[in-house]
Amino acid sequence: MTTPSSDQRPARSDRNPWNWLLLVPIVIPLITALYNADQPRLLGFPLFYWLQLAFVAVGVVCTTIVYRTGRKRGGR
């Protein structure tokens, strides 16, 4: 498809030890034992609902950290 060209840019890498942090928001929402209960309620929300909504924040924080640390390491 493309003809190989001889450009050899300084190799960019996606390697970053912080990438492991991505596992946190993948694994935690899959452990139903953590949240499959009615009590304690928060603002009338059973645990099942408010805790899973709170996991959204966990996902955002972890992904943002991975993005920020990855950027410092030479990638974009």
Binding site: D14, N19, L22, L23, V24, P25, I26, P29, L30, F48, Y49, Q52, L53, F55, V56, V58, G59, C62, T63, V66
Partner: peptide
Amino acid sequence: GAMGFFALPYTIITYPLVFLVLIR
């Protein structure tokens, strides 16, 4: 009921899951 709420964990998991995949 609760079973339908799977849509939430589904859309939480998906972004960290594909983060390194989609950039490649």
